[in-house]
Amino acid sequence: MSENNVEKEEFIVFRVGQQEFCVEITMTREIRGWTQSTTLPHSPSFLMGVINLRGTILPIVNLAKRLGLPYEEPTERHVIIVVQVEDKTFGMLVDSVSDILDVGTENLRSVPELDTKIAEDFFNRVIVLEDRIICEIIPDKLMPDMESLAA
């Protein structure tokens, strides 16, 4: 039992549509409400635009769109999870934050082989609990490839 305590990892769990996803809590910087974003020209559709995060320009990824899920126009009830990957910070637009979980290794599974590119690209592991499963997102992969963008 004590072994498991050492191995535990902490995740922040959020909801997009009917599904739950999570990211490692160490990657998140803050959670904030939705504010109107400024659209960027020549950018992929899943990139909502940029918002002002205390003076820095924060790009926002619409997670539903990025994962190919149905989405609705964001409202004030939507939430932006600010994550940091290396030296870049960006926001993920999600429906709501539902949980913060301590998960032991016994509940972490690798992603099952699915017939979808998205699972392979964006999911790292799956948290399997008694009554729910939660896919762990790899934030690094969410942002558009910078090089192809510059072209």
Binding site: T35, Q36, S37, T38, L40, P41, H42, S43, G49, V50, I51, N52, G55, T56, I57, L58, P59, K88, T89, F90, M143, P144, M146, L149, A150
Partner: peptide
């Protein structure tokens, strides 16, 4: 404000700025 610091260079856009209402203008 630099766009590159968190994102990338965007064609046709030199940088961004924050307006009085807190919104970003390119």
């Amino acid at each position: 404000k630099s766009m590159e610091s968190n994102y990338a260079r965007i064609p046709s856009i030199a940088a961004a700025t924050i307006l009085g209402n807190g919104r970003i203008a390119l």
